[in-house]
Every structure is written in structure tokens, then in C-alpha cells.
Amino acid sequence: MPELKPIAASNFYFEIDSMTDMAFSKIGGVKFEAKVQGQDKPLMSTKGGNTVRQINSAGFEGLFNIEVTTLMSGDSDSTSKKMYDWFKKCMPKTEKGEGKWAEGKKTGSIVAYDTDGNEVMRWDLKEAWPSQYKIGDFDVSGNGYVEETYTLTCENINRKK
């Protein structure tokens, strides 16, 4: 039996073109969902009363969403600031953004590393933009840091390794 080499969930990097040296605490919510035709609906009945069913793939359900989380920071060179500036660039002018959604789309990658720091998995993203922004809780009794979570909408995601 081959040796199992699981990937540690903590050894990852998220990179997006033109935005370097960023740090994220979480990446999640990556989901692929196929659309299907037919499902459990009966299509027809044959001699003897047998019901015929058929399930066919009909592509994928909409766009792909990924959640990336970073720690909130006031530093002008922080991941927090870079991500918020990108979000603001893509927001419509009617929402006080820059309205540059089309030119704000980027490519990027999610990279997983083994315990020796070697790249073992990579997912490439194309036509990605921040579509949602969420600020974590401020809590007088809390002892953690405030996090920011961005939902990135991607038109394509492809596992390369």
C-alpha cells in the first residue's frame, strides 16, 4: 500500500496578480456544483409499467466563489488594505466604488505546500473579483483579532497539480 501523504491545512498561500506579499488566515468555500437534467423525475413509462429515468450533466451551476480571510490592519501596505482597495475598485460607482469591475478582474492561485515547503497542489483562478466584504465582530470581551473576509467570484478555477 502506498504511503499516505496528507496535506496540512495550514501550509498554503493565496496569490493574486499584481498584489504581492499578502498573508491570509483562511481560504474556504471553494465549491463546484454540477447542474443536472432529469434528476429523479420520471421521463416516460414503458410496456409493463416500468418507469424510465435519466440523469445528464448540464454543465456547472453559475460562477465559482471562494472566501479568503485576513486580519484587519490599518497599515497602508497590509493585505487588509490591498484587498479593500481591490474591492473598492470593483464596486459600482452607485455604491461609492470606482466602477472599474471589468478591469479589476484578476488571475490568481491557491497553493498548498507539504511540511518541507514544497508545492504539492495548485488551483489557478481566472477572471476573479471581490464580490462581497465582511468585517468580523468587534467585542469588548473578546481577545482575538478582527478579521476581514472577502468572497471572490471566479469565472474559472482549475486544479493544476
Rank of each mutant, 00 (worst) to 15 (best):
residue 127 E to H: 09
residue 104 G to L: 08
residue 40 D to P: 00
residue 29 G to R: 03
residue 108 G to S: 05
residue 125 L to S: 04
residue 158 N to R: 13
residue 56 N to I: 06
residue 7 I to W: 03
residue 123 W to S: 11
residue 147 E to D: 00
residue 7 I to H: 04
residue 69 T to A: 11
residue 73 S to G: 00
residue 125 L to W: 05
residue 127 E to S: 10
residue 80 S to L: 01
residue 126 K to E: 15
residue 20 T to L: 08
residue 141 S to K: 14
residue 19 M to F: 15
residue 105 K to W: 07
residue 45 S to T: 15
residue 86 W to F: 06
residue 115 T to C: 04
residue 62 G to K: 00
residue 136 G to V: 01
residue 93 K to A: 15
residue 104 G to K: 09
residue 150 Y to T: 05
residue 54 Q to D: 06
residue 45 S to P: 02
residue 148 E to D: 13
residue 53 R to I: 08
residue 94 T to S: 15
residue 128 A to I: 14
residue 47 K to V: 12
residue 151 T to E: 13
residue 18 S to I: 09
residue 71 L to Y: 10
residue 158 N to S: 14
residue 159 R to G: 04
residue 44 M to C: 10
residue 135 I to D: 02
residue 138 F to R: 04
residue 34 A to H: 13
residue 63 L to V: 10
residue 62 G to W: 00
residue 121 M to L: 13
residue 62 G to L: 00
residue 4 L to D: 12
residue 143 N to L: 02
residue 97 G to I: 05
residue 34 A to L: 15
residue 39 Q to I: 15
residue 153 T to A: 12
residue 11 N to C: 09
residue 62 G to V: 01
residue 10 S to C: 09
residue 119 E to Y: 07
residue 16 I to V: 15
residue 85 D to T: 02
residue 4 L to H: 09
residue 44 M to D: 06
residue 90 C to V: 03
residue 121 M to H: 10
residue 56 N to M: 11
residue 107 T to Q: 14
residue 50 N to T: 06
residue 76 S to D: 08
residue 161 K to P: 05
residue 56 N to D: 09
residue 26 K to T: 07
residue 144 G to F: 01
residue 110 I to Q: 06
residue 115 T to M: 08
residue 124 D to R: 11
residue 132 Q to D: 13
residue 71 L to I: 13
residue 146 V to G: 05
residue 70 T to G: 11
residue 22 M to F: 04
residue 9 A to Y: 07
residue 88 K to L: 15
residue 84 Y to K: 11
residue 143 N to F: 03
residue 27 I to L: 12
residue 53 R to Q: 08
residue 103 E to Q: 14
residue 148 E to V: 00
residue 57 S to F: 09
residue 118 N to G: 07
residue 148 E to A: 01
residue 26 K to P: 03
residue 70 T to N: 06
residue 140 V to H: 11
residue 131 S to T: 13
residue 52 V to H: 01
